[in-house]
Design a protein around this nucleic acid. Structure first.
Lengths: 337, 337
DNA sequence: ATGAAAGCGCTAACAG
DNA sequence: CTGTTAGCGCTTTCAT
């Protein structure tokens, strides 16, 4: 029922080839003819079938986004960014949600995905196995990772080590020496290099000031609020000396610490300073000091690189270190004398 | 380069028709032959081209999700739900993000979208214009809305009026009579019936107890934390009597109120009770009393209905009232005597 | 149970 | 500037 290119051609009394050229704005078609064709196409409500042109050209004008989660801050913001860039260029966004790490990656890589289905792919915060990368490269589509380095493909991300160091240095410069560390847990570290880098940046910053991180103040979370709360409970319940500050590898965890501290009457920043990384939507309302990064920008950049590459700009996809910035709010202050 | 059905057929020494049947598990193909074909297909890494089969069948095995935002709680959770259901049935998810209300809806509806591109569509929390609905129906694909009623199409959502009433009744039963109301703003109300329904449920519940909502305690937010903070500031800064409780039409706004109250030393629930709707990921960590709803379930249901309809179960797409439930935490208590 | 052949709707040379 | 002619890769009658 929907008008096909043949219908338009018939009404316009031209060949389908001409209609195709006219609609796609290709050269070598009389301006008058083009106008007439466009008018007719519009009237008939004609829109080229993606399947048909996809079959004919090998291009789907669709870019895939592979993410382990879609409902966590970094991911949903990145998707927003990717979409924003695609939207203004009439590209479609096909979402591949793993629903956690590990999950059914295999099925996704082996079959369904990426098989004449998308023209390019952006991988969000995921470390790919050599096999997966190989599979992806074999399919020969442009590829870019965001939110963390991925060996074997270009990526866009902040310098996590320096970002963590910046957070640590902020606390150190305020005079803190007893700093707890809430980082990503085992699962995250396995799937993702970021937690490791942030931990390293934190530890080195302390060491550089002659401060030795304490074993008992090293907590594992998994980047979620719930785990921030759990870690804070564990920390606050521990006997022995308490830290005067806590560095969290993500704002979500930091917010969890804030909630738990509040519940216990531990005043922030008077009794405890808290700093995170991200500048999550809730950071400003909560007065959380943090190291800001902008996943929307990163996602837009990733999509733009991919589209440029697809349009022929070889080399458009490249590594990029996104900026980060310390945002001081009210959750950090000098330790009590 | 990627193996095509012809390659498989050639190696198996059968026709492409047989390969097609074998791969898709259709009847009328010798078990032995099928096994051989499957083995060969696997070895060759053969996967049918979606464009080609899409062109031949008119089915894309892709379902679209239309949302005004992707990075807000309800939406990202709904997407997760839709995806979860699709994933287990090898359907793809094409994301149409409006990037706000109004935006470039026209372009989306007129061209790109929904044109041999998706088999069905789920619309998230969006009121469609008669024209848009007409356009969608004209394309004759199954359609279902989530998170709010949409005239002219089936939808899945909680009974917002009763949910709001439940929240109000909780406060009333605790003894509150001076209750502020933080609801959706103009833009939300225009695009979306939910805010109106929640406001109505709240007001009626109060009226039923002989309590008249006060004009000056009626604040407009837009469902975000930032606006919750802004509204709370406005409320707390106002001269005259202060309410003993505030009902927020969403948890995100309620969390904003919590943050601002905390900043000012207003104790919750001693000085002020706060209740929201949603059971946002941060509600439990923050101790926020709320009316719970589960967008993941709603999204899964929406996707399941659509897939069933596509598989031939006419009438599978239908209206459904999702459950809601009062979750009492530590942000509500009787008003001080 | 299997094959031959005709498309699905569009694009891409190649002519004219 | 425009038309002809092949496909793109898969599905689907209709035969056999």
């Amino acid at each position: 029922m929907p008008a096909s290119i043949g219908d338009v051609a018939a009404v316009a009394k031209v060949s389908t080839a001409t209609v195709s050229r006219a609609i796609r704005g290709l050269p070598r078609v009389n301006p008058t003819t083009r106008a007439r064709i466009l008018a007719i196409a519009d009237e008939l409500g004609y829109v080229a079938s993606p399947s048909a042109s996809g079959l004919a050209t090998g291009r789907t004008r669709t870019i895939g986004v592979l993410a382990p989660f879609v409902d966590r801050w970094y991911f949903s913001r990145s998707i927003e960014g990717v979409d924003k860039a695609l939207r203004s260029n009439s590209y479609n966004l096909l979402l591949f949600n793993l629903g956690g790490y590990g999950r059914d990656r295999e099925r996704l890589f082996d079959r369904n995905m990426v098989r004449k289905q998308i023209d390019a792919l952006v991988v969000l915060c995921l470390t790919l196995t050599a096999e997966e990368l190989d599979h992806l490269h074999r399919i020969e589509i442009p590829l870019v990772a965001t939110g963390g380095a991925v060996t074997g493909c270009s990526s866009i991300h902040i310098d996590d080590e320096r970002a963590a160091a910046a957070a640590a240095n902020h606390l150190l410069s305020l005079g803190h020496r007893n700093i707890a560390h809430l980082h990503g847990g085992a699962e995250d570290e396995q799937n993702f290099t970021v937690p490791r880098l942030r931990s390293k940046g934190f530890a080195n910053a302390l060491l550089a000031q002659g401060v030795t991180p304490r074993r008992e103040w090293d907590l594992a979370g998994n980047f979620t609020v719930a785990n921030g709360v759990a870690a804070a409970r564990h920390l606050f319940d521990s006997p022995g000396p308490q830290p005067t500050a806590v560095f969290c590898a993500s704002d979500e965890m930091a917010l969890g610490v804030l909630f738990e501290a509040h519940r216990r009457g531990i005043r922030v920043p008077e009794d405890l300073s808290v700093i995170g990384i991200d500048d999550h939507e809730f950071a400003e309302p909560a007065g959380l000091t943090t190291i800001r990064q902008d996943p929307v920008e990163q996602g837009m950049l990733a999509a733009s690189m991919l589209m440029a590459e697809l349009e022929g700009s070889t080399g458009a996809v490249a590594d990029y270190v996104a900026p980060h910035q310390l945002i001081v709010r009210s959750s950090t202050a000098p330790p009590r004398a």
